[in-house]
Amino acid sequence: MLTDWWTIALVTVGCAFFLAGTVGLLRFPDVHTRLHALTKADNVGLGLICLGLMIHDGTLPGILRLGFIWILAIFAATVSAFLIARWHESAGTED
């Protein structure tokens, strides 16, 4: 029962990070600041959700799967953020 509460707490907090990241995406003024909001909030948000689900699953394969999901997602997120930021920098466009 206690593990269920841990899962609920972690997933809820993780979702709150996603919500804050989305608010940042909408409110921040330009591409670079928006990328800040996306990469950081998603990293922590997804990490907490995966952690919560790992506790819920409790089996080794399940934990491995969730771990792979988190690592692959944040690596893809940080590289694509870098490429978008770089493209924006070289294009030099406004917005």
């Binding site: 804050a20 409110r27 600041t33 800040h36 950081k40 922590v44 948000g45």
Partner: peptide, 22 residues
């Protein structure tokens, strides 16, 4: 640092005055 970074950016995004030191 990830946790701190997430909290930091969430705080800035939700803050009414949107404090960004670019």
């Amino acid at each position: 640092q990830s946790l701190y970074g997430g909290l930091d950016v969430a705080g800035r995004a939700l803050h009414p005055r949107l404090p960004l030191l670019i």
